[in-house]
Every structure is written in C-alpha cells, then in structure tokens.
Amino acid sequence: MPRMNMVQAINSAMDIMLTRDQNVVLIGQDIGYFGGVFRCTDGLQRKHGEHRVIDAPIAEGGIVGSAIGMGVNGLRPVAEIQFADYIYPGVDQIISQLARLRYRTAGDFFAPVTIRTPCGGGIRGGQTHSQSPEGIFTHLCGVKVVMPSNPYDAKGLLIASIEDDDPIIFFEPKRIYNGPFDGDPDKPATPWSTHPKGEVPSDYYTLPIGRADIVRAGEDVTVLCYGTMVHVCQAAADYAEVDAEIIDLRTLSPLDVPAIVQSVEKTGRCVVVHEATRFSGYGAELAATVQEECFYSLEAPVIRVTGWDTPYPHAFEWDYFPTKRRVAAALEKVLEMT
C-alpha cells in the first residue's frame, strides 16, 4: 500500500474527485500554479486545468460566496481558506447563506460546498496562524464539521465531504500534515510513513461522515478528542499509564453520540480534549452530551483540557498548547475522583 502524509492524502482525494466528477472545481488563494502554501493542491492545476483549479483574489467572503453560487449552479466546489484564522471575512456567507440555503428554500436550493482550511497550533504561528475556530461552526445548523487526524482518514473523509450534498467545513490540523505529533516539540519529528494510518490506498474510497473511531480501546476512562489532540492523548495515556479508551471524533457535527455513550457507559469516566479555547468551546457540547446521556454511568465529573481562554500566543506556545502533561494530569485527576 502506498504511504502518504496528510498533504499527499488530501491532494490525492481532490485529484480523484476532479477526475471522477467534471463538476468538482477548486478555488482558493495560491492553490493553482503554486499548489497552495501547504502544497495540498500541488500539480492539480497542471493536470486538471486553470478552469478547475482556480487561483482566487484575497477575499474569503468572495471565495465562499462565489463557491456557493457555483454550487447552486450545479458545480461541486472545494474552497480552500489559506488558514482557518482567515475564514472570518467568509463567515457571513457561511452563516447567512451556506448553512441555511436548503432550509430557507425548502430544499429547492442548496450548495454542496466543501471548505478546506488548515487549523491549529504548534507551528510558532502566533495568533493568526494557529487558531482552532471549529466551535464557531459546530454551533451552526446546516453545515457539517469534519476534522481528520491522519492521512487515511483525511482522504476518505475528504472524498465523502466532496460527495456530500450538505456543506462541510473540513479542518486540517496543520501541525500533523507531515507527521503525527504527540505534543512534545523537543522530540524529533516522526513522519507519517512510520504510522499505520500513513498507509493510504491510491484509489477512491470513502469513510462515513458522522462516525467516530476508537483509536485505542480501554477500560478506565474515555477520552474524546480530534485532530492533533488524538496523538497527544495517546501519548498522555502512555505517560500516565492509564487504560484509556481514546475516541477520535473525526466528525464534530453531526456527532457520533452512540459511540460516545457506549464507551462512557463502559468506563464511567470522561475527559474531553481540544486545542481550541475553553469557554463556550466545542468541549462544552461534548461534556453536556455525556452528562445528559450517561449521567447514571458517570463516576466522576467530565473534565476538559483545552487551550487557555486567551488569543494564541507566539511566545510560551508550549505553555498554551494542551500538552501531554496537561492531558495526563487530567486523566490522573479523573481517575482519583469518586
């Protein structure tokens, strides 16, 4: 089986969809001739043409808004927002049009747009290259939110997203584009080629949207996480020597509630982990869901480990980032509580 990093897997997904479906078009800043600042669209314009892999002006509202129009007119656009931190000029279009078009027109109009955007920290990018704004979008009714944690999932989920008739915000944790990252910046980087999920079929396949994945089975505590944190949480469980069941949510909205319930009913404990800030963050939704669905199985309160409630800093990045030690501390704490 071929080995791919996440960039290559994402590239492969778009390449396949451009080949299979004439209606798929890509639009975004620097994605054409240049191949994207993270190289996710490398070679795609050369192969599929300037009319299908389109360099956009620097206007996120224009990118999202025009992608919606293309979608309404029968295309299946995949828009790239260069960094999730720059999605905000497009947010009016996402909230007021993309998310509600189907509802407002009783199903007569819709736009099957996929918005890909790199998110998350750990790259010394400071406050405008490190944000995790997924919670803004999971709060919307009418868009699905996906965030893969490895190349295999990224490809299968991206193809499924492009084929999906609902709009999808597809977050790509940029820290793990080239290799899994367990939260320790001092360790030498590991490439995806040494990771089982770096094995990626070169052909078409899809993974279901809305389905979580148990990346490690365990008995004592359920860890709900996604993106880069999937790797940090595994390292934390090792570090704390805790028999944790680690669930990679993969799709944040709609949420795979049965997978969560099944696990928490077994373990009786739950830790929720994300890079995004805490207050009103996506973790609050997870904690509330666990409380509502699993209250009588819980042996301890649900604990969150998140980014602090400040903008993402440039200095002190590793004091800000929820590292394995912070997750491990939470695992230990939730196991001590009765």
């Binding site: 990018g125 400071g126 406050q127 405008t128 290259h129 800093p313 440039h314 200095a315 002190f316």
Partner: peptide, 9 residues
C-alpha cells in the same frame, strides 16, 4: 523587551 509581550509573530 518585546513591545507585544510575546503575543505576535
């Protein structure tokens, strides 16, 4: 002595 106190690139 960073005027931004480490908060910016």
């Amino acid at each position: 002595k960073d005027m931004c106190k480490g908060r910016q690139m």
